[in-house]
Design a binder for these strands. Structure first.
Lengths: 212, 212
DNA sequence: TTTGAAAAATGAACAATGTTCAATTTCTTT
DNA sequence: AAAGAAATTGAACATTGTTCATTTTTCAAA
């Protein structure tokens, strides 16, 4: 069916080109999502941004949700990398604090991405289609936090707590701050600037946790 | 210009009928939003649910966002009432715990409403149009929490904390749990059932706070 | 170099949606 | 009963996500 010589070479190149175009679509989508929001970005926008036709986008992504899902996946890789970089901090409680700060920094520097990862329903729904287990991309990140907290408990912190529940509680607290900030639910809650209130709230959280 | 006798009577009736129809639209919208989600509910759906035409809906609500905004407002009234009912609990820390449980109960019993109140961008945007101050509907609720926490501090709790930041931190923690639960970000995080993990996390939070 | 089939790209066409508004119906007052 | 006001209608428009028959491009084989 297929000739032998130099075929594999072109096939590879083709595959790489396909990947590059897919990447191009993703970059354009992310840019437009940030600029005008997910809802107000049309497939036609994305297509004309990369100077291809509408149909081409549908060749590489089944629908708009699949683009969201791909961005979602990348978000978790980025957050995961950012947290993995802190594993060298040996004192567990210091590592916990650093992890929290890194998490907040990620959320605030990539607000739309964070929104996509934790506040949007769409990506979770498209994942059902694939596998029950696919969300574990995100849960690996939770595993890192749980390990750090386990280490803290070994060092005498969090006496009387249960790891699983405590980890979720702490994750919730930090996520809650970021989420309320990003979704603009802090305006008017205090005289302070939203950003500063967030920082101070994180300090408060640390103070609550820091009892041996 | 207007006759005097029995005119006010009909005018009042007319006004009441208008209110009733507006109420009808809102009820239908809420029902359909819960059944099929906000995105997948069309104005035509709402119209045919109440057996009126599309145009009529637009007479009472400028656009879909205004319907969302109205539900948003009602949500805060309901949550506010639920929290106000606990002001009789005299011991401040007990009141704080009860407030948290009431908050969680509200979020889980009215998941779509909660979503609307804290996770959706749309209602916040339409509010900008009206007044800078309108979001205070929601902030009154925060005020109740802050007062309870102030009382806790007077009773010796939360030593060394700053009220504003601490209140926001605690709100964040509880909101985070509810938000992650509703947005289905707990699946697979633990062997436990999501609902049970949420309860246990709340217990963990209380344990962290309960140091005099 | 030519060729022809496979791969990629196209964009017109479709269905569904939010929204508008001139026309119609219903109600109220005189 | 009739005129005027208010409420209701639903056809029509613009925009969207999505599909698919058609066209263009690519490239191994002759």
């Amino acid at each position: 069916m297929q000739a032998e010589h130099c075929l594999m070479g072109t096939a590879e190149r083709k595959a790489k080109e396909k990947e590059e175009l897919k990447e191009l679509i993703l970059q354009a989508a992310q840019k437009l999502f940030v600029e005008k929001g997910v809802e107000h970005t049309t497939i036609r926008n994305i297509a004309s941004e990369i100077e291809y036709s509408v149909g081409t986008v549908y060749v590489y992504y089944r629908d708009k949700n699949e683009i969201l899902h791909d961005l979602h996946r990348r978000g978790f890789m980025k957050l995961g990398a950012s947290m993995a970089a802190l594993q060298h901090v040996s004192h567990p409680f210091e590592r916990l604090k650093a992890t929290g700060r890194a998490y907040i920094a990620f959320a605030l520097d990539n607000q739309l991405m964070y929104d996509l990862m934790f506040n949007m329903k769409a990506p979770m729904h498209t994942m059902r289609m694939n596998q029950e287990e696919k969300w574990q991309e995100g849960m690996a990140t939770f595993g890192v936090l749980r390990q750090t907290i386990t280490d803290c408990m070994s060092a005498g912190y969090f006496k009387g707590h249960e790891v699983e529940a405590l980890s979720f509680a702490i994750w919730s607290a930090v996520h809650g701050m970021c989420s309320l900030y990003i979704r603009e639910r802090i305006q008017g809650a205090s005289a302070a600037e939203p950003r500063q209130l967030l920082e101070e709230a994180f300090e408060s959280l640390i103070r609550m946790m820091d009892v041996k």
